[in-house]
Computed example of a mutant assay.
Amino acid sequence: MIGLFFIKKASRVMLLSFPISAYLGLLFNDIGVAMKWWSLVPSKLESIATLPYSLGLYPVVVSLMYQFVYPKLKATGFIILTAILLTLCELCFMLLGHVDYEDGWNTGWTLVSYMIACCIVFVNMKLLKKVFNVP
């Protein structure tokens, strides 16, 4: 719902960040499920269970943070703050029983994975802005 509202406020940011954010969300979640680092509810449909996160929460949070936080904190602040926010969201889902960490995975590794993903999104956004000459 927030994503629909936001698309009117910052459609350029959404168009630039949503595809790579969604792709990375799907990729990281599929790898994590396949490696048995975490499981989601319902456990028999884990790839489908990741879709609300990969196609909803992650891209919307990254877009919001890029639009409103990046201009104030620059790259490092954007990456760290976005990764922390997403990690806290995932920690809430874990405490609610929607996500279960397994096989050595923990909140620290979650933060690292989000920092990697945010770095990739940031670099991709910069390249796209440069290539398409978007302010």
Rank of each mutant, 00 (worst) to 15 (best):
I2Q: 06
L16E: 08
E90Q: 13
R12W: 15
M115I: 06
L45K: 07
S63Y: 02
C92L: 12
R12F: 13
M115N: 01
S113W: 03
D30A: 14
A75G: 08
V131S: 05
P52R: 07
D100W: 09
V99C: 01
S21K: 02
E46S: 07
D103R: 09
I48A: 12
G25V: 04
L27K: 04
E90A: 11
K74I: 02
N29V: 00
M14S: 04
F5Y: 15
G56M: 00
L55Y: 13
D103W: 05
G56R: 02
G104W: 06
L96M: 08
R12Q: 15
K126T: 10
K130S: 12
E102Q: 12
L81Y: 07
V60P: 00
I120M: 08
T76V: 15
P135W: 05
L86Q: 06
V60E: 02
K44F: 09
L45S: 15
V69G: 01
K72S: 08
L111E: 00
G97F: 07
L24T: 04
K74W: 04
I116S: 03
I116Q: 00
A49L: 03
V33I: 15
T82R: 01
S47N: 10
I120E: 04
P19S: 05
L57I: 15
V33E: 06
A22D: 02
G32E: 05
L40S: 10
L127I: 13
G77P: 04
V131H: 09
S21F: 02
K72L: 10
G97R: 10
K44N: 15
